[in-house]
Amino acid sequence: MNQPYGVILAGGLARRMGGGDKGLLPLGRGTILSHVIDRLEPQVAGLALNANGDPARLAGLGLPVVPDSIDGFAGPLAGVLAGLDWAAAQGGEYIVTAAADTPFFPCDLVPRLLAEGPGIVLAATPDGAHPTFGLWPVALRDDLRAALQDGLRKVVQWTDRHGARQALFDEGGTPFFNVNTPEDLARAEAMA
């Protein structure tokens, strides 16, 4: 299996944070998103950002910005599809996704997901799956597009259809802690 491409999922509405691009909020010496980029970029063949709206606001990141191709903010699966389409254009076989609001995910995310492949592999901790962190085969993009066009929105409903496995991250702590509220941002600042 070739090295996968990476896609950062930043296509949400950030309602609990008051809207806007929460990934661009300051955290430590950078932003939430800069922490995500720093962790994922060394692990992948190339990196893109799934985000909706005017891509010019993200030009300073130096990454290709790929919007959802399914209208109406269809959730993380729409971002996965956008990433699969982008990777297909690069000749990629797989993508690994990471959430733009999760700055402390494991630095060995990609090799651990690959170790459980081939096929769809979702990151998990003892408290459950973290489906915005996963390994996704480009070959399933047309199936995913059809499912989204039929109204499917729940990640696990689609991944279960395809025999998804899990990569367990059980070394303790909160490796997939995500920033959803101002209180979470204060906690992340303390963690940084």
Rank of each mutant, 00 (worst) to 15 (best):
R165V: 08
A146V: 13
T125L: 05
T132A: 14
D160R: 14
D150R: 14
R161Y: 04
I120V: 11
K154T: 00
R165K: 15
Q90R: 15
T159F: 01
I120C: 02
A123G: 01
R187W: 13
A115T: 11
D101S: 09
A129S: 08
A98V: 13
T132V: 06
A167S: 14
L122C: 14
R165F: 08
Y94A: 10
R141N: 08
K154L: 02
T159G: 01
P137F: 02
N180P: 00
G173N: 08
I95G: 00
L152H: 00
L135W: 06
D150S: 13
L152G: 01
G119L: 13
G151Y: 07
L152Q: 13
G163E: 03
V155T: 13
V179N: 03
R141P: 01
T174C: 05
A164I: 01
A99Y: 12
F133M: 12
C107M: 10
Q90P: 06
P103I: 07
D142R: 14
T174L: 14
P106E: 05
V155D: 14
D101C: 00
A186V: 12
F133I: 10
I120E: 06
Q90V: 05
R153G: 02
N180G: 15
K154N: 11
N178A: 06
P126R: 04
G91W: 08
D170I: 00
R145N: 13
V179D: 03
R112C: 12
D142I: 00
G173W: 09
P103T: 09
G117Q: 04
P131R: 04
A147Q: 06
L148H: 04
G117W: 02
Y94N: 11
L152C: 12
A99C: 09
A100T: 03
L135Q: 03
A139G: 10
E93N: 14
R153E: 04
P137Y: 09
H130K: 15
G151L: 00
H130T: 13
D143H: 14
F176C: 04
L113N: 07
G134M: 07
T159A: 11
A186N: 03
P111M: 10
C107W: 03
W158L: 04
D150I: 00
L122H: 11
R141S: 11
L114D: 07
L140W: 13
D143F: 09
D143P: 04
A115W: 10
A147F: 07
G117V: 04
L135A: 03
G91Q: 08
P131H: 06
Q149R: 14
W158S: 00
V179H: 02
T97M: 05
V110I: 11
L144N: 05
